[in-house]
Design a protein around this nucleic acid. Structure first.
Lengths: 179, 179
DNA sequence: AAAATAAATGAATATATATGCAAAAAACAA
DNA sequence: TTGTTTTTTGCATATATATTCATTTATTTT
């Protein structure tokens, strides 16, 4: 899907560079082989919650309104990565196991990062379900998590990649309990 | 000096009300006996770090850039719909975000409505996952939720905010008929 | 106090952004 | 498949915002 790709690219560019107009962003996108018109960009930015804000030095730049900033404030965590035990992928979803009692805090951290790729998370005591947005692959979720929680990949590396593939069938046992 | 007074007034108005354009703000100011032109307002807003940001429901409002729009506390629920923040559809599932601590109560409410369309729900602290029965589309779940929780559809954020703006007049088409 | 300098403002306008509408593309249904 | 509906998009344009320039108002200097 072209739109999803564009939304992700917009997010990335806006986070990385100081963009001061939609026209400028348009060019950056074109540089990455993504093209659309200013009209579409305007719509996409609204959808992403990105807007043109004063940058404090008399100019303007595009930035996420609010939530991204908040995430960094909520950082009193020692090292979240260290409580993660295992990652399993299945049915287009991702399941993260933590040491007992840490699922909520971890999920909250992921939530507040406000990544577009992630539609939402649900946490029990030691398990988190990550639901990717439509059009987002698990690989994309992976790299997005790596951004939020640097070192995640390496920590899990040993068993995870293979295990994730193997373990597909064991997915449901943990979290999906019906009321 | 006139300027200081105006800056303070602007701050106050922007925090208290949903202002969607400088022209609108201009009128509010005039109502308070403060008058200036849009040009001056533009300069003042930049100075204050206030900008026009997407409000999450397809419109725009002026707000301090980066400042968190604090959601209300966990409140005893009179109206369940009021604790719902956002609805996102993904992977054939539906994710409902509530204000913290309210997911369980809301999920319970949905469960006990006993709709056929919904196979089950899982709730964390502020997120609910709704699992539709096999063969049920998200549109059908939507319609069904709208019945359980009237007024819900206006909160739908999902893939496109334009949708929320226009409203779904086709909502009821897809409702499963029960006897 | 007058002269000099800086800051603030409005009018007009340039720039930038949002949106109505028709067409194209994509998703769905039959 | 083919027809039907929904979603996405570009174009043209309306709307909204920023800025230039000339003028006024405040502040500082002598």
């Amino acid at each position: 899907m072209q739109k999803t790709k564009r939304l992700l690219a917009i997010e990335k560019i806006v986070e990385a560079e100081k963009i001061s107009s939609q026209e400028a962003l348009l060019k950056k996108l074109k540089g990455k082989g993504i093209k659309c018109t200013q009209a579409t960009l305007s719509r996409n930015l609204r959808q992403l919650g990105i807007s043109r804000v004063p940058d404090g030095s008399g100019n303007y730049r595009y930035a996420f309104a609010g939530k991204k900033v908040v995430a960094s404030e909520i950082r009193p965590v020692m090292n979240i990565v260290s409580v993660i035990r295992e990652i399993v992928e299945a049915k287009g979803l991702m399941v993260i196991k933590t040491i007992p009692g840490n699922a909520n805090a971890t999920a909250y951290f992921i939530d507040t990062a406000g990544r577009y790729e992630i539609a939402g998370t649900i946490a029990g005591d030691d398990t988190i379900l990550i639901i990717p947005r439509n059009g987002i692959t698990l690989a994309q979720v992976h790299s997005c998590l790596e951004i939020i929680l640097p070192g995640l990949h390496s920590l899990i590396k040993g068993e995870d990649t293979d295990k994730a593939k193997k373990g597909r069938n064991s997915l449901n046992k943990s979290i999906i309990k019906q009321k």
